[in-house]
Each structure stands twice: as structure tokens, then as C-alpha cells.
Design a protein around this nucleic acid. Sequence first.
DNA 1: CACGATTATATGTCTAGACATATAAGTCAA
DNA 2: TTGACTTATATGTCTAGACATATAATCGTG
Lengths: 247, 247
Amino acid sequence: MSLASDQARPGAAEKPTLYKRIRLDIETRILTGEWPPGHRIPFEHQLMARYRCSRMTVNKALSELAQADLIERRRRAGSFVRRPQHLSAVLKIADIRAEITALGRSYGYQLIDCRRRTATAADRARLGVSTAGKVIVIACRHSADNVPFAVEDRLIDLSTVPEAATADFSHEPPGSWLLHHVPWTEAEHTISAVVADDRTAKALHIAVGSPCLVIDRYTWRSARTVTAVRLHYPGETHRLVARFKGG
Amino acid sequence: MSLASDQARPGAAEKPTLYKRIRLDIETRILTGEWPPGHRIPFEHQLMARYRCSRMTVNKALSELAQADLIERRRRAGSFVRRPQHLSAVLKIADIRAEITALGRSYGYQLIDCRRRTATAADRARLGVSTAGKVIVIACRHSADNVPFAVEDRLIDLSTVPEAATADFSHEPPGSWLLHHVPWTEAEHTISAVVADDRTAKALHIAVGSPCLVIDRYTWRSARTVTAVRLHYPGETHRLVARFKGG
DNA sequence: CACGATTATATGTCTAGACATATAAGTCAA
DNA sequence: TTGACTTATATGTCTAGACATATAATCGTG
């Protein structure tokens, strides 16, 4: 594992390119807290002078930091360290069906419950809306190679996605349908841990009281809530893995 | 999706810049499956011709797609659509002390145990090394406003970081020390859920059997393992939150 | 003082080049 | 066939400019 590219002689640290060095320098200052959230990063032309390079080079470094959400750039004002998103995490929005099939496992889907109703107070709170429109409430289960993979509880706001009223979720998972029919503009993920209650334990074929990884995802289109979904994964078998480079 | 009618509606629909249009065009083809994983994207040359722009412009579009892990770029070979990630998660490496103080809460640190020993078989397996060098084993606790925030179990490979032998971890958390002294080049995070065992429950002041979020982080410098750390967070109070844009 | 107009400035995008470098592919000898 | 060498080529990085654009700051006017 771990990148077997051992062609480098021990101690022969390859010199990174200039823009990467600039990016790493800034990143380090941010991650160590030397430059706290809100701190203004030196202007591009100051960095040009410090590193003796062209503006495009520092611009590339800063642009990548901005794409990684470590800094925020504002015209005329400068570039600023962003507030950390509480152990900032980025989870790409993903379709469970695509995820499972990409792993070469067979995907299974069982619709547990699907109903349409006027949003209750709890529904409105969950979706973050104040008016009481219609919603779709879905419970379903995803499995991989016939083993339960996750249970899903979803709420879809029909006032944002009226087309969903005519969709058939008995065979197509709502996540896949939404991904193909509704472009999202913003999303929020929250990861937490719980112990399985009776219903979840039954659906996942695990013991009551065993740990579950929970992912809550909210999706918006412009300023309108599209959907709120909670996924329970068996915590002992499911893992979220992320590998990334810092150089 | 519908990048269709983008005509001159008075107040809205500002024309995106060229490189963003290139990026969106490619992104759309990937997300709709028109260009499946493994498909080779047109060479920069060809895109220059198609969009009648300079190489730097198409390069910027492709670089951003590469940073977002949608494509992979290989010298001489070209750029290729990547296989979708296994619910790919990216957690920025962060220093818990900086994280807590950034939230405006007071940071507390308690060293539970710190010892130095020749790596056991289990240590070697955890660090992914085969030779039996010296390691530092640390257990400590982080708290926010005097409430336990996380317990940490860490292994530091002294053959990679000999300077750590003389570091004093009785007051400085090892994560902070490492961030300041050892630049990392790669890291891997795994998130899972467990139920608290006796020791963890005591340290976090929670009940045995309550859920915990677990983050395992491995850090490398070049091809050498720097440290392996496991963090237990109380699952009922701790959340990993991520907000991001998809437009 | 309040408020609109102007200006200065930092970032955003783009160009037309340059040389570096990794590597797929082809070539040739053992 | 295999291995070593060469070459072609696509990407990687960088430069020294250019103009566009959003907006913080300043200025001027009522």
C-alpha cells in the first residue's frame, strides 16, 4: 500500500514546484492556526515579491486553496482564511446504487414505505421550510450482494420538485431518481454515530444496540430545499474512507 | 443537465467565463454517463481548437476537474474520466486544539499515557511497516470548555520522526506538535461507528454502550509512515458537518 | 449627516508563447 | 522474445504582459 513509488532515494526529497510550495506554506500556516480564520493572506503582488515569481503562479496556488475551501477570495478586498467547518469534511454527493455497482457488487433495492402527505410540523422542521406544502416520505433499503447495506429515510419537498409526484420509487431508488432529475446547487452532510433501534436493527439484520454510522444529507436547489435524507449504515462493517495528498 | 436556454434574460443568466463553460461541458458529459469511467477526454490541443482559446484556458478547466477528482491526468497519455469514488470522503487534516479554539471554546488537554517502546507486531501492522523500530505510544484526551471532546490513541514512528523522541507531550498535544514539526504528504481517514467500551466511556464521561464516532487517520511523509491515530468522539454530541456547493 | 458618484485596487480571466518532464510507443540489438 | 535505447507527445509549470470586473474607500453634493 501507501504509494509504493520508492524510486526516491532516502533523503533525496524531490523539490516541489513553486506554486505547490506556496500553497503548502499557506496551508500549513492555516492548519496550524498561525493564520486564524478571518486572517488576510498577503496580496498576490506581495507573494509575487516574496517568491519572486509571476502573478499567475501565486494565483494558481491561491485558486487551488479557494477550490479546497481553505480560503475565500474577495475582489478588491483580498483573500481570507475561512472558518473551519468543524473538522471540515467534504463528502461527494453520491448515488448508493452507482457506488455499489462500481464496487462490482450486485445492487438490491427494497421499498419499505412510500407515502404522500401534507408536511407535518416535524417535516417542516426537518426540511427547514415554514409553509406546509406536500411532501413525499420514503423508507427503503439498499443492499449489496443481498446483504443489507443501508436503510434510508427520505423526505422530498414537492413544492420544490413537483415532478417527483409522478415518479415511481418502487424499483428506482429515490436518490438515483433525484440525481438524474434535479440538479442540486448545495448540500450539507452530517455524520454521527448512534446505536441501532429496533426498526433499524431489523432492517439491517444487526443486533439492537450495535453501532450505526448515520449520514444526514440536505440538498438544496438555489434557496429551496429539495430533499432531506438520513442513512443508517451498520457501523461495524461500513467505513468511509478518504485518501488525499497534501503536497 | 439543462445548460440549454441561457439567453439574454435581463437580470439573470450571466454568461459564465470560458474556462467554466469548458469545465461544465466536460462535467456534464461525465455525470450523465456520456463519457464513462476510463474514457479519454479530448487532448488540450483539441479543446483549444474547439473552444478557440489558449492552452492555459483549457488547462485551467482540466486542472480543476482533476483537483475535484473527476478526471485523472497522465503525462503523454491524456486525461481520463475517473471511476466514481466509493462514497469518497475528504476530511481536511486538522488540529483539534485549533479546531476547538476556533469555535471560541476553551481547550483542555490531558495526557493519559505516554511511553516509548520497540514496535510490537500489532504496532507494526498498524503503522504498515515491517521492520521493528522504536515507537511512541500516546493516549490523551481533548476537552472543550472542560467537557471531554475526544480521546486519542496515537502511535508515532520514531524511525520516521526521530525528533519526536525529545518532544514533551505532557502539555502539548502530539497532533499539534506533529503539524508544526513534520510536514505530511499524504493522509488517509477512515470513519466508523462503535459503541463505547469501558475505558473510552470513562474517558469521555459517557455510558458504556453509547455510540462513538471513530476517526482513524494515517499520515505519511513521502513513503514513510509518520503516525497512526484513532480518535473516539461521543457520537451523540459530536457531528462532522460539511457544506458544499455543486453548481 | 446621509447618500450617490467616482476612483483605486485586488482579484478574475485570458493570451501566446517557453522549457521541463514523464512516458507510451517505436526501434534495434542480443 | 526480450531488454535497452530513442523519440514523440501530452501534460506540468511558468512568464510577462493584457483587459475585465467587483467593490472598498474616498469624495462631493444636497
